[in-house]
Amino acid sequence: MAEIYKKETQLKDYSKDVLLDFYRTMVKIRKFDEHLIRLMQEGKVSGFYHSGIGSEGLSAGSIRNVLRDEDYIYYNHRGCNQKIAKGVPLSKIYGDFLGTTEGTTRGLGAGIVHSADPSRGVLGQAGTIGSQLGIGIGTAYASKFKGTDQVTVIYFGDGAASREMLHGSLNWAGLYNLPVIYICENNEYAISCHVSETHAVKEHIADWAYGYGISNCVVDGNDVLLMHEATKEAVERAKRGEGPTFIEAQTFRHRGHFEGDPYDYVDGELLKDWKENKDPIRNFVSRMLLDKIAEKQELKTIDQEVEQEILEAIEKAESAPQPEAGRIYEGLFA
């Protein structure tokens, strides 16, 4: 069955630029999230928000320095992590949340789902969880048909993995040998239900991929470099025309499913362990300091730069106007 992805990663095998890029991206994701929650608390953002705090390494590692603008992603329900890593401008993501014309939807508004940036391969996401599993293979099919080396990465949670569409999707991916990478962000809980209560698997969700003849592995999603290595192998496999890969990335969310979720279905000690001992950013910082890649002050400067960038993005998003009422009649048809 699915094997645990193991590889000895050494910081010295990466350039400092790449390492700091991973760091900056993870910090950007976390600070974006913290500020968004603040905006919600201030009553400026409506709707649901699914915080991605605690899983930044998974998205940064699988996107930064491995995917190009022309590679496609379908993000998941904690998908701001992936959109930010793919380079969607922060002001546009905030603009969607705030419903201003700065958003990617030019004022229609979007939560985590429905923002899109085709110029960066971000083709949107469905409100119905897991629907991207079917849409993504169509995108991968189109790349294969056109003969490009573009890959499509489909992110989805353990909860979405119980959607029937996963099996229709895996069957097509295996059958047509599509350049697609499944990244199952397994944070163990679909709202309140533990994965063991909802999935019939031998041991891992990735075990299912075996039945479809699809390469697969289980990886520590909170180790940004390990995540990067696993994804890089999958991307290279897809580009060689050797078809799909299923990566189950293990992580845990620091907050509830949605803001306001009491999150009392998770054992307090377990959550504390994830926060204190398995935090992707904290652990990466420790490694960089230990290997003397960067000084504390250098990282602090990055933190400040990111903070500033986010405040400016929010300012830009907030100062843009709300759309005219007529906006709802635009764009239904091409």
Binding site: G136, Y141, A142, S143, E164, G168
Partner: peptide, 17 residues
């Protein structure tokens, strides 16, 4: 059928099919 239609959507929105 859901996969057929979903795949059509995923192809169409690339502009390549």
């Amino acid at each position: 059928e859901p996969t057929i239609v979903a795949a059509a959507v995923g192809m169409a929105i690339t502009g390549n099919a």
